[in-house]
Simulated scan of single mutants.
Amino acid sequence: MRVAIAGAGAVGRSIARELIVNGHDVLLIDKAADAIRPEQVPDAEWLLADSCELSSLEEARLQQCDVVIAATGDDKVNLVTSLLAKTEFGVPRTVGRVNHPDNEWLFTEAWGVDVNVSTPRIMSALVEEAVSVGDLVRLFTFRKGNANLVEMVLPEDSPYVGTPAGLIPWPENCSLVTILRDGQVYPPDGEQPIESGDELMFVVGAEVEEELEQMLAPRADRG
């Protein structure tokens, strides 16, 4: 897979290293000359250019890319880069980095963003995940599927403690992805019971999140 990353700072370089390790071809683009450091990611291609300029993206052969990641520290640049990649070059998938939480609402398909990654939201979710028991915590949003990756630490008073996962009447548009217990990952097969303290991860439609939460951890204050 060929991936272009706009923004060759610490974030962009880190993403590039991970993708290269996984066998992908990576192009790093940045308009700042001091950001072009091929010695730090020697297996990547490098391009000194402005990703908001159509001519620069033509030089980068963006039409040959499977994914474009807009990972600069400027939300305006990330939006414009994503929009050009999608509308002018038909890139199948775009990922936009959100630097300021107030701008997250802009990072949608209307601006050519298939997936937005908000560092403040991820950090907040991780904090919630660390301290919350019995509350559904949203970890990630899949824009195209109108679904979310969510997690819950099952409370000891859940009515489904000890019930095999395959016998639980999960809501429609909801799929149990995995069960995490004592540092081990368990498949969500029909015979595996869920236990108090398990971390349950789901892909679920936003419209049934409340139903799932109330089902696993019913509380009077949830109605």
Rank of each mutant, 00 (worst) to 15 (best):
E88W: 14
E151C: 12
T81L: 05
P164N: 10
I179C: 04
A60P: 06
A32C: 08
T178H: 09
S158R: 07
P120M: 08
F107N: 00
P187K: 10
M215C: 10
E59H: 15
E109C: 08
E211I: 10
A220C: 08
A217E: 09
M215R: 07
L200A: 01
E213Y: 13
M201H: 13
C65D: 04
G205R: 08
N22P: 05
G145W: 07
R97S: 05
S51V: 06
V80H: 00
E18W: 13
L149D: 05
G223K: 13
N78V: 07
V153E: 10
T72F: 02
R13F: 09
G112W: 02
H100F: 09
A35Y: 04
G197I: 08
C65I: 00
I15G: 01
E156W: 14
K31L: 04
D74K: 02
A49E: 08
G197Q: 09
A60N: 05
E58K: 15
A32N: 15
K144V: 08
D25R: 14
R61K: 14
R61G: 12
E18C: 14
L136Y: 02
N146P: 00
A44R: 02
P42A: 11
F142P: 04
G205V: 09
L28M: 05
V80T: 14
L176D: 02
L83A: 12
V203C: 03
H24Q: 08
W170K: 01
N78I: 00
I29E: 00
T87Y: 09
V161F: 09
W170C: 04
I15M: 03
P164M: 02
Q64R: 12
S51C: 09
I15H: 01
I69M: 01
V98Y: 02
I20V: 11
S56D: 00
E199F: 11
V153S: 10
V177H: 00
G166T: 06
D25E: 12
A110H: 07
P187R: 13
D157C: 10
A147D: 03
K86Y: 01
V150W: 03
G12N: 01
R2D: 04
R2S: 10
F140H: 14
V208H: 02
A4M: 08
Y160H: 06
D135Y: 04
P164R: 12
D66F: 03
D34W: 14
D25N: 13
G205L: 04
V117Q: 00
A125R: 04
L47Y: 07
E109T: 13
A60L: 05
P171K: 02
L216S: 00
F107G: 01
D75E: 10
A10V: 14
F202E: 05
P164G: 05
G166Y: 05
E209A: 09
Q184T: 13
V133E: 13
